[in-house]
Amino acid sequence: MPKQTKRVKRESVLRGAWLDNPMLVQAIGLTPAIIATTSLRMALWFSLVTAIHLLICEMVASLWLKKWHSWARTAVYFAIGIIFAFGAGMLFEVWGGVVGQTDVVDLLMLRAILPLMATSSIAAVRCERFAVYNNLRASVRDALVNAVGFTAVMIIMGLLREGLGHGSLFGVELTETMRIRGFWMPFGGFLLLGFLAAALKTILQWTSQRGITTDADEAMEFCPEDRQERLEKIHHLLNAADEYEKSRKPDDEPAPESQQEEAQPEAEPKPVSVLFEPATSNFTREFPRLDDLTIEQLLAEFQGGARDE
């Protein structure tokens, strides 16, 4: 099991939601931003359901799923999402039937798109990138950070798209003149997301908290030349790891865990389990920040992880 990374930053939840915003920085969970923000009420309800889903997934992943295969973990996130989507859909059905159709048209539409939340990438990606490598407290904090960031973007998108697109807020008509259909259309959603991301970047530049480049930008900048450079860096670090191993005297420090396991007498072979094996690959291929990983993690990454070449 990989050791805890050094990437846990001690920041406030609000600042984390801003700097590591799941939609505007990490570019995950974009589908709800396009579909579920055509009205503010729908955006709020969708955010609430997604936040609970994310929290529970990260808690479950952190507590019980660390030793599972990544594909089995993904199935668990999906199953949790289905249960939530079904429960929330039933609640909206009952509410819609009680209140009356015309008042809650957008909620009735919501029950058609809630199942998409089960497959939304935000829970799976955050769990695979963070929760399976960290303890419960850090995972809960990460879920809160991402939920706050997700909700903030959904609210802003809902405000703009409903206000400017339909000329209303919460179903209350504000203006008949100022209705620009493009805002509630899907292309308007993409453009608004892009401009919100640019606005966030501008704010980050002004406050100089993170600088210009973020994790997602490094990933977006990726191209084969970078991969070659990255491989050379891994080779260099592996050579450094070999030299470190050679230079370390046998009596100075206890050998790393992997060598201790090899030194032990042959244990009984573990039963092969389909679900329970050390995770060697992630749900999505994430480019590790080489400077943050320890040498053992690098070795595991290079030897155990998949390569495209």
Binding site: C223, P224, E225, R227, Q228, D308, E309
Partner: peptide, 8 residues
């Protein structure tokens, strides 16, 4: 994997 064409 062949290298990307360098020239823009």
């Amino acid at each position: 994997m062949p290298k990307q064409n360098q020239q823009p």
